[in-house]
Design a protein around this nucleic acid. Structure first.
Lengths: 207, 207
DNA sequence: GAAATAGTGTCTGTTAGACAATATTTC
DNA sequence: GAAATATTGTCTAACAGACACTATTTC
């Protein structure tokens, strides 16, 4: 049996300050992705949740296994998860961690940068083809909020009319009785329908 | 550091005898998926390739990491890959392994059955949205062969005219100068274009 | 009433999907 | 010429994507 360290890392995304952000730790001079060694009698997912619970005051998140990195025979094995965190979650005090914009980060090691890039790719993919965007928003949200979420994650502008039409047609969301007031005309609040089919039927290559 | 066994399993698919088949081993009374423990100084992918090389006379295959199973804290960690094997590959002699139709297999343990079901789902998904089907065929193939491949994996009949049209329009394949003769009219042989973009642009949920 | 934001409908080009007849070979 | 297989084109309904104006609220 091989005695090789097994790490569980977590890429935590959130939307705040009009930016897609990722949680980075700086225990030393360099930035790292949060994580920990797999503990005795613990599942992989539990280890990921433990790493999140050590950083945030919120437990319930969208969590998905990303990949297991073990290409370099010398390096530790890394099982990487990614998670979506609503903006309301707070960092626990006393942790050398901060939310950083998803962007080239010179202090992030190359191995972590590769993982982060892949996680972002998967997040965008997920967002386009499934109904995962709600995990970044509060339970009730306006269609403008939702569109903004998509625009930030995908990094492109979306057409308002087409967005609303397709989002409503998809059946993923439903109206609530509530309105959100603000600067201009109040906006209808919607909520995610957990019973909706989460996968979009995408175009197949073959008939 | 936790001292937990780390296994690398491989789900090997091939098409033969008009069936989608998977390679199963029977070292004991039950059937299992091939695999081995991760060896010292070895990458995950190398371990998967080693497990394949121990069974088949062909090394070069399509190999993709599927998932890492570690939900049960008591069980070993399993990094699972899936691979596509052309029908020409031969089983090495003296191995307690056989190709079995992908179907409910009573002798296959529940954990393996779950893995196999997921691998099949991923294979179908891959086939629909990327150009991976060629990995199950010889270098040159007819459009009928290719359609047959898709029909077997997807488990449904496809319309010939639409299939050919879209496959040719996709640019994934190109004509060769060769024909395959047989019972009826000879068929044009095609080959995969490795330089083609492998991903299909699928329909997005949002504009 | 000015500023801000929410909300709504139509048109066009492309594509998915359904559908059947002809062409070329072997035996 | 019968049997087997390969090859080819059209039509329609649905959808993607482009596009601009009206409605409702606050200050």
């Amino acid at each position: 049996m091989v005695d090789r360290p097994l790490l569980v890392n977590v890429v935590l995304f959130r939307l705040a300050d009009d930016t897609l952000q990722v949680l980075l730790e700086s225990p030393g001079p360099r930035l790292e992705l949060p994580g920990s060694e797999l503990a005795e009698g613990e599942s992989l997912e539990q280890a990921a949740e433990r790493a999140i619970a050590a950083l945030l005051d919120r437990r319930k998140t969208y969590l998905e296994q990303l990949f297991t990195y073990g290409a370099d025979a010398g390096a530790p094995l890394r099982v990487v998860y990614f998670a979506l965190i609503p903006a309301e979650a707070h960092l626990l005090p006393g942790r050398p961690a901060r939310w950083a914009a998803v962007a080239p980060e010179p202090l992030l090691g190359a191995e972590y940068a590769e993982i982060l890039a892949y996680a972002l790719r998967r997040l965008r993919y997920k967002l386009e083809y499934t109904a995962v965007g709600f995990q970044l928003l509060p339970a009730e949200f306006t269609l403008s909020d939702l569109q903004h979420t998509y625009e930030l994650v995908l990094g492109e502008r979306l057409d308002k009319r087409n967005f609303r039409r397709r989002m409503l047609d998809s059946g993923f969301i439903e109206e609530t009785a509530h309105l959100q007031t603000g600067q201009g005309r109040p906006a209808r609040l919607y909520r995610y329908r957990p019973d909706a089919v989460a996968e979009v039927k995408a175009r197949r290559l073959f008939p």
